[in-house]
């Protein structure tokens, strides 16, 4: 993934949430973005995930300039290339874990024939094979988060964007979640982790710190198993 991102974001009265951010993330990177609340982390992730568009600047994802894509193509990018893990889980209420995990495949252009089988496999991978037919309300926070992770993986996207994945979890479930991410990186996924918890951020190989809409620091840990970075 190549991304040069330079963006302003106005909310209401010309509030600049992001100011001239330029960032480059490579395929296979394990990046965490850290910063206090209100620094613009989530906005950055929304833009990275094609959930909203920058006011100005360009964002190139996998060689395509996102700002120039139609809604149909953007939706496809979200569907095929990006898996989201949200702090608030964002599962459909009243719908079973299995159906929640299937959701991306419902909107997929080439859905596999064995949708249910695939969903079961992914749910088993996150350790929820016994909770297939429970609705989010019947699941604990940790379990819900695992459903969310399963949903982000079902369409096998190269990139996982996680916004405060441990924010609503206790430390034990948080650890579990982080272990899952560590494993996914080894499988070759690009992971962008947004957090305000420096301990969580430490899992990543590269830590970008954001303050007041600007990059304050960009540090890389000693390379351990990285395929390539700047």
């Amino acid at each position: 993934m190549n991304s040069i991102c330079k963006s302003y974001r106005n909310i209401g009265f010309e509030t600049q949430v992001l100011k001239n951010i330029t960032l480059h993330i490579n395929e296979g990177d394990y990046v965490s973005i850290i910063g206090p609340s209100g620094a613009g982390k989530s906005t950055l992730m929304a833009i990275a995930g094609c959930l909203s568009q920058p006011t100005s600047g360009e964002y190139i994802l996998d060689g395509e300039e996102v700002g120039k894509l139609s809604d149909r193509k953007l939706s496809r990018v979200r569907n095929e290339k990006i898996g989201f893990v949200f702090q608030a889980f964002h599962l459909l209420p009243g719908v079973t874990a299995l159906d929640n995990v299937i959701l991306p495949l419902v909107y997929s252009r080439n859905p596999p024939s064995d949708i249910k089988e695939r969903a079961r496999e992914v749910l088993a991978k996150v350790g929820l094979e016994h909770r297939l037919h429970h609705t989010p309300g019947q699941l604990s926070g940790g379990e819900q988060q695992r459903v969310t992770i399963a949903r982000s993986l079902i369409n096998n996207p190269p990139i996982i964007l996680a916004d405060e994945p441990t924010g609503n979890l206790d430390s034990k479930n948080g650890m579990e979640t982080m272990k899952t991410f560590d494993k996914l990186v080894k499988e070759g996924k690009t992971i962008v982790l947004i957090t305000h918890d420096s301990e969580v951020a430490e899992h990543a190989d590269r830590i970008i710190s954001i303050r007041d809409g600007e990059i304050a620091s960009d540090t890389k840990r000693q390379p351990s198993n990285l395929s390539g970075n700047l």
């Binding site: 939706s75 979200r78 964002h90 909107y107 997929s108 949903r151």
Partner: peptide, 16 residues
């Protein structure tokens, strides 16, 4: 609204 957001995030187009 939130449901729409979720569906859009996982790849639903406007026409969907």
């Amino acid at each position: 609204t939130k449901e729409i957001g979720i569906r859009r995030a996982v790849g639903a187009t406007r026409s969907d």
